[in-house]
Design a binder for these strands. Structure first.
Length: 140
DNA sequence: GCCAACGTTGGC
DNA sequence: GCCAACGTTGGC
């Protein structure tokens, strides 16, 4: 199956991208929203993920990769919730701010803009490539 | 701190 | 099944 692309949102005060870089991988658990859960379940090993800091100065700061597909969320006994394992791939040379994304016509369709509260969301391949490019990286 | 968007809960 | 109340998220 073709590689899929995603975006995960996190408050930097809770778990900054730097922490993920430091720990190399982390369990993306504690998600308690059905739509976000469905997205977690659809993730496959090897999928690429944009790491977004919400809160003050919201921006995409890095890229990670799914290293383990959905498994039962260890933070709850409830069977209904899942988590995935994420690995830090790289920090963007320049973070891509929400403001930049809003200004970029090719990114107008991003779920980030249309569904601001969704914490795990799908990203189109061309959107992912554009964000990576804006961040100072090469396009895929 | 405020407000908009949206999810959840509970009464009916 | 509808809707009001309430809670949470997240941008500003």
């Amino acid at each position: 199956m073709a590689k899929q692309y995603w975006l995960v949102k996190q408050e930097p005060s809770t778990y900054p991208f730097d922490k993920l870089v430091e720990e190399r991988t982390t369990s993306w658990d504690g998600v308690r929203n059905y739509q976000a859960r469905n997205n977690l379940q659809a993730m496959k090993k090897g999928d690429r993920v944009l790491y977004y800091h919400s809160g003050a100065g919201p921006e995409v700061v890095g890229i990670c990769e799914v290293v383990r597909a959905a498994y039962p969320d260890p933070t709850t006994d409830d069977e209904g919730w899942v988590s995935v394992e994420l690995k830090a791939v790289k920090r963007l040379k320049k973070p891509v701010t929400l403001e930049q994304i809003k200004r970029e016509p090719s990114l107008a369709g991003m779920a980030l803009l249309r569904q601001s509260r969704l914490s795990v969301q799908p990203v189109e391949q061309d959107e992912f490539a554009r964000v990576e490019q804006l961040g100072g990286g090469r396009a895929l």
